[in-house]
Computed example of a mutant assay.
Amino acid sequence: MTTKDPDEPAASRPVPAASRPVPAEAGPRALARRRRRASAARFWARYRTHRSGLFGLGALALFALVALTAPLTVGSGVQSVTDAPGRPMESPSAEFPLGTDQFGRSLLGLVVWGARVSLLVGLLAAVLSVAIGTLIGITAGHFRGWFATLMMRITDWFLVMPTLVLAIVLATVLSRSLGTVVLAIGVTTWPTTARLVRAQTLAVEARPYIERARALGGGHWHVMSRHVLPNVMPLVLAQTTLIISSAILAEATLAFLGLGDPTVVSWGGLLQDAREAGAVSAGKWWYLVPPGLAIAVVALAFTLCGRAVESVLNPRLGVAR
């Protein structure tokens, strides 16, 4: 048992924990930030155990770096038809590692520049699709009744209709631009997300704390934004990563069919140019393989990341690593 020295200055004596001043950082916002950081650390620790997810993430980081640095590495002049440095459809060489297209432009530069358009369209279309599906899924699961029935019948109609056919119709009716491609893909690929989010919303609203929130005066907006949305966000995140790969493939398909923006370079547009130039019948494989391989690798990388995220957020799925 220790005794206090009466001659010891008061400032040097230990202050009891209960009487210590609470730092300003220990407020609700700081606590919320610490919890988010801890949650992110746990997510990354579990994500790192998925080798396929790490491979997909590394591939996506590489493609993103290539797309962002395209103006510095290949320059915007690579898209010019009038200033093409090589001969049309020249085979791979030291000067042109992937050969040239029908106008004599470097295919390596076109593939690098096309990554910007394909990734941008895929991301924007996926965000639009997930936003529509989340909105319809949460509202249909919250309000029930005739509104939910109407929303689900509309969703079923979009589900049974061929997505590519609807996207082609929209891309044909509207002007040929990147905005049209994003809109065509986004408004035709949301039904799956809506179904999943509605099922999760019904499960969340069956929990006791939702009844307590309503008893304390929480309105529809409070329940949907403060309780339902945070609980469905993990599902939305996983669904977004899975839809991006489908959106990139859809953009490539529309561009291959000649429904994309003819003024920009994309991977699907390169395949369309190769088809028009007769690269298949002429055996010019270097015109077809690079953009097609880029599409396949990016789609695979997003799929691997999506499966890994889904497994981390819902371990009961038992996704293979």
Rank of each mutant, 00 (worst) to 15 (best):
A115M: 04
L128T: 13
E90Q: 13
L119F: 05
L62S: 09
L98C: 05
E90A: 11
F63P: 11
T69P: 01
G104R: 03
G77M: 13
S76V: 10
L60S: 03
F63Y: 14
M89F: 09
F55H: 08
P97L: 04
D83Q: 12
S129T: 06
E95G: 15
L98P: 02
F63M: 15
G53I: 09
G99H: 09
S118W: 07
F103N: 11
M89E: 10
G104I: 04
A61N: 00
E95Q: 14
A59W: 02
L110N: 03
V112Y: 00
V117E: 13
T82I: 12
L98K: 02
T73V: 15
L107S: 03
V74D: 00
Q79I: 09
L60M: 08
G75L: 08
L62D: 06
A70N: 06
S129A: 10
L108F: 13
G86L: 10
P71M: 08
G58S: 11
G104S: 04
A59H: 00
A125S: 11
V111G: 01
L54V: 12
P97S: 07
L108M: 12
A115R: 03
A70S: 11
L65Q: 03
S91M: 12
L123F: 06
G77K: 14
G56S: 02
V78T: 10
F96T: 07
S118D: 11
L119Y: 05
G114N: 02
V121M: 08
V81L: 15
V81K: 13
G99N: 10
T82Y: 13
V112S: 01
